[in-house]
Amino acid sequence: MPDLTPLLGTRAQRGFLGTVVLQGIVVLTMTGISFGKVAAHVNTGSNRLFRTLPCYFALFILAQLFHIILTFDALNLRNIIQVVGLLIFQACLTIYGGIQIQETRTALVQTPGADCATNYVTCSGPGSLWAAIEPFQIVVPIICGLALGVMIYFTWKLYQEFGWAVFRMVGADPELKDMFRYYQIMIVLLKFDYFAFTGLTMQLLILVLADRSAQFALTIAAIPIVLILLTACGYAVGQEIKWLMQISLTLMLASEAYFIYKFSRLFASGSRHQYDSTRKSLGVFIVASFFLLLATFCVGIKCYLDFDKGLKSSKIREPNSLPRWRRDAMRESKSAHPMSPGPSPDVRATYYTAGEPLRERISIE
């Protein structure tokens, strides 16, 4: 039976969102303490090695806010595909948190054999700055890993509640359901593309903030271009605008070249020194962003090939997948006009109602 409960009306929904929020509070507290301890003793902008801490802290702030917003969005839309995407995102955060431990140590421990009494910041023994923040660094991937396990449990419960919603919005036609599934995957990928690009740009700006070079200008210029690209692509795939989709797909390939270029900068002789303490984590981030955009491009091609096949006229969202205020407005409108005709047979065919026999379904040609 379909889920007719309001947003956050079930234990699984509250549990999933609560897990993400609680993790965000703990992770941001741990990273905030680490950053505060470092900032109290060193100027993080004075040395490229020290910039890994503000880079790490800023990325986790962005990641946790993004995680909470997309979790609420997924529960509001009853979108199980997006929920699964959040699990993958959570796994990536866990891995990134683990990588960051070693990179933070590389940034701070520059004289490992030195006496910590006179080299508190750069030594590695007991009583060093690294020893003071190491426990807080270790807690981050542990908390993320535990939260991932809890989220997997609640995802199974959520699938039982509304896993049907994505696949039954366009009637019984299997071809339309397949096209709609790819459309939903495309929209979810674009949402994660926003985070990947914003996170990468933010890290690069922090690392080269003091270098007023062509690289800095190029990074700044890329921000509006890519954000406009992603927005235009989402609009094009939703409205099935072929020329705009063609431009978006072409620019995606150009963006892939940008990722390759940025990855090469991590190892080029003239720029590798800028990334001494962030090469591993930034490299993993760039590679992940590259393959995420590549997946978006491939799914975008599939969506483009599905244009003009009847999906646009069949993108009728179920009342139960609409935000609550929209459902209330629909009920008020219906009560205010009791004699007004109901939805067309094609629309009724996509609705599932509780306590009523299903009406005859009319296939969509």
Rank of each mutant, 00 (worst) to 15 (best):
L4G: 13
P6G: 08
L8I: 13
R11T: 10
R11W: 13
Q13V: 08
T19M: 04
V20Q: 10
L22A: 09
T29H: 05
F35D: 07
G36V: 07
A40T: 13
T44L: 04
N47E: 03
R48Q: 05
R48A: 06
L49D: 05
L53T: 09
F57S: 10
A58T: 09
F60M: 02
I61F: 15
L62N: 05
L70F: 11
F72Q: 11
L87P: 00
L87N: 01
F89C: 00
Q90R: 10
I95V: 14
Y96R: 13
L108N: 02
Q110W: 12
P112M: 09
A114F: 00
T122L: 02
C123Q: 07
A131T: 01
A132W: 06
I142N: 11
V150A: 14
M151Y: 11
I152N: 10
Y153R: 14
L158C: 05
E161R: 03
A165D: 06
A165L: 11
F167W: 09
M169V: 12
A172R: 05
D173C: 03
E175C: 11
K177S: 08
Q184P: 10
L189Q: 00
L190K: 00
L190M: 00
F192R: 13
L207A: 11
S213A: 01
A214Y: 14
Q215A: 05
Q215R: 02
A221T: 15
A221Q: 12
A221K: 07
L227M: 14
L229S: 06
L230W: 02
L230V: 03
T231W: 11
V237L: 12
M245C: 01
I247S: 03
L249T: 00
T250V: 06
T250W: 04
L251Q: 02
R272K: 05
R272Q: 04
Q274S: 14
S277D: 01
T278W: 07
R279M: 09
K280L: 14
K280V: 12
S281F: 04
S289I: 14
L293Y: 10
C303P: 01
L305I: 03
F307A: 00
G310C: 03
P319T: 06
P319A: 05
L322E: 10
L322W: 13
L322C: 15
P323R: 06
K334G: 12
S335Y: 14
A336S: 04
S340E: 13
P345Y: 04
D346W: 10
R348W: 04
Y352P: 11
T353Q: 05
T353L: 06
E356R: 10
L358T: 10
I364L: 13
E365K: 10
